[in-house]
Amino acid sequence: MADKLLLINASIANRAVFKITFKGRRDIQAANDAGEAMRFADRIPPDLIALDIGDDQGAGIVHGMIRHFRNAPSTRNTPIVLLASTAQEPIAIRGLALGAVDFISKPLSPLVLAARVQRHLDLKQERDTLAHHSGIDEVSGVASLSHFDAHADREWRRALRHHTKVSVAVIDIDNFRAYNEQHGYIAGDEVLRQLAGALADEIRRPSDLLARYHGDQFVALLPDTDGTGASHVADRLLSRVRNLRLPYADNNGGHVTISIGLATLEPKSRDGLPEFLSLAADALSSAKQGGRNQLKTLP
């Protein structure tokens, strides 16, 4: 399958260079503005984003798009390459500090474009392969979603055989999207790392697993744990994060907080795991609607 390139705000000339350079070897999706680009990326995550800095584009628009793509779960690890003329280099350099990986000078050279794009696609593939095989989320340092899925499936089937209960907690960082928008993705990643370390300290048994779930969410699987035991664990998680007192002036209380949705079941069928996780997600929604910084349990 061809790598997918998302080309944003490109001039007619630069679209032509991309088409000629990658004809038949890359799947190119062209977006005319930030809104269209974000919709494309959310629907089909690209392997590389190329953002053409136009003469009529202010730094705020360019840097806002970079922040969005760095924060969005679907594009968090997608390399962003900027296309910049000499006059636009200050915007591009600031873009590198915000998370872009490279900028290519305009007018575009097909040979340079092909080499630089290939290099960043190769690096992304290496990172993706390493993360997949290691089972570790590269930002937070806890288990990855793929590792969680495999572990949860094994534990679910084991509980089904032995008629034991399983609990799961879905943990969401309150108002984290706003935190990233205000403080930037670098600060956001640091919060993720600190929270992950603190939460992992409270997930103590070898059979338990904490993983990065989706964006600003973690998930904790607790095999052989009834509702009472799981509630004790969840209360420890809430207290640990409150005691961290990570500053967040715009959040209630002035510090980073979490909400937790908890579910406990004895498995009755092999294919019941997705519904089980949905129960915890529903409990999390109830915790958020109830004011955040709290635990809700289903059923």
Rank of each mutant, 00 (worst) to 15 (best):
S259W: 05
E155C: 13
Q194Y: 07
Q294R: 15
A287F: 11
R158F: 05
A200E: 13
L246P: 00
T75M: 03
Y213M: 10
D33I: 06
T78P: 01
S146W: 02
L123D: 11
A150F: 12
R70V: 07
V219K: 03
K124Y: 04
G135L: 02
N71S: 15
T257P: 01
I258W: 07
A249Y: 03
A263T: 08
S167L: 06
R154A: 14
D33Q: 10
D128C: 12
E126R: 13
L83M: 08
H183Q: 14
L5A: 11
L298K: 14
V81G: 04
I173W: 05
L246T: 03
A114T: 01
S109E: 02
K296C: 14
D55T: 14
L209A: 09
R177E: 08
L130K: 15
L265R: 11
I203W: 00
D216L: 07
A234C: 14
A41P: 00
D226T: 10
P46I: 01
D102H: 13
D235R: 14
R43P: 00
K165F: 04
R292Y: 05
D174C: 12
A178Q: 07
H163P: 07
V191H: 09
A281W: 00
A84N: 05
A234V: 08
T78D: 04
L121C: 02
A34S: 08
A2W: 04
N243A: 13
A263F: 07
D201S: 13
G58R: 03
A41S: 05
H214N: 11
M38R: 14
F103G: 03
L199P: 06
L108E: 04
Q217R: 14
Y185N: 10
A13R: 09
A10F: 00
D42S: 11
P206I: 03
E266T: 15
D208M: 07
K165Q: 13
L199N: 09
T78Y: 02
R15L: 11
P107H: 09
L210R: 00
L123R: 15
L82M: 13
L277Y: 00
W156D: 02
Q182M: 13
R157H: 08
I203C: 05
A114P: 00
T86M: 12
D55H: 11
H132K: 15
G261I: 02
Q194H: 14
A87C: 10
N32K: 08
F276E: 03
D3I: 00
A41F: 00
A114K: 05
E202N: 15
R15T: 09
N77T: 12
L246D: 02
L244H: 07
D226Q: 10
D153C: 04
T78H: 05
A196Y: 08
D208Y: 03
D174V: 11
T164E: 02
F40E: 07
H214F: 08
A281Y: 01
R70W: 03
N9D: 12
S109Q: 05
Y248S: 04
E126C: 04
D271Q: 09
P223R: 07
D122S: 14
R39L: 14
V112W: 04
